[in-house]
Design a protein around this nucleic acid. Structure first.
Lengths: 131, 131
DNA sequence: TCAATAGTTCGGAACCACCGAACTATTGAA
DNA sequence: TTCAATAGTTCGGTGGTTCCGAACTATTGA
């Protein structure tokens, strides 16, 4: 079974729930913040280099798919690798202020965590982390 | 095993991920929008009356717990029933513009859906909805 | 043609969410 | 004080979702 073509929802099909779900994951919001921040394309390996967490590429691939199908990014092949760019202009038109507010909140939170130095569990712990 | 005391995170413990996760569910965002809109307390039975969807009370109870533990609402007993109020002032201080943007986006989306008349599946369908 | 690189798909295990049943807590009346 | 009624919580099972390693597809450059 070959690779299915990349799925991009039209801007009207994009939902708030989809966006919030996509960005409620620490890894995905980090990826997305990165894509938005550096106004240049971004791909899986690039993210692996930036964050030195060891996230399997299959997992990363799915994270990118979730972001794409939520309408947050647009992915296209360029040669052997993928270019992912944010759809923030369209999104700003559909849901004014939403993306900005989320990214800004994420920045505020990261700053706070950096200050307190403790790499706090960012969520009620979605997977029971041990013993 | 008795009932555990209600858990309210301090405002500094509130995370963006937690908020987005909590509000990425159609039912929860509807409850929350309701609580924010009518600047008065709100409870489970009240919501059941407002939305005429038949959501089991055990499920509703858990939805309220998620909202509470994400720091979005504050719940306290008043007699036999619960009063739920939004913590939007604190939240506005911690993450300026976030709540407003999400609620506003939700409003925009609802308006759009009402216009097109089709009760569109709001999400890529988290639980396979049928057949 | 083939090795290297980048990403996708698949399968299974771990995790999480939903809902009915049984429970706790509070009130008001008998 | 006992009891029925009301409001909500907890538990357990089932079924959907996510994660990750292994195997695969796709593209490029030698």
């Amino acid at each position: 079974m070959g690779m299915r073509p990349l799925l991009h929802p039209s801007i009207n099909e994009v939902t708030v729930e989809g966006i919030l779900h996509a960005l409620s994951d620490p890894v995905r919001v980090a990826i997305y913040a990165d894509i938005v921040a550096q106004e240049c394309p971004h791909n899986c390996s690039n993210f692996l280099r930036v964050s030195n967490k060891a996230i399997p590429k299959s997992t990363l691939s799915q994270h990118f798919r979730v972001l794409r199908e939520a309408g947050l990014i647009r992915s296209e092949r360029h040669g052997v690798e993928m270019q992912n760019i944010s759809r923030c202009i369209e999104l700003e038109q559909r849901f004014p202020g939403l993306i900005r507010a989320i990214v800004s909140a994420h920045t505020i939170q990261s700053a706070g965590e950096a200050r307190t130095k403790k790499p706090v569990p960012k969520r009620p712990s979605r997977r029971a982390t041990a013993q």
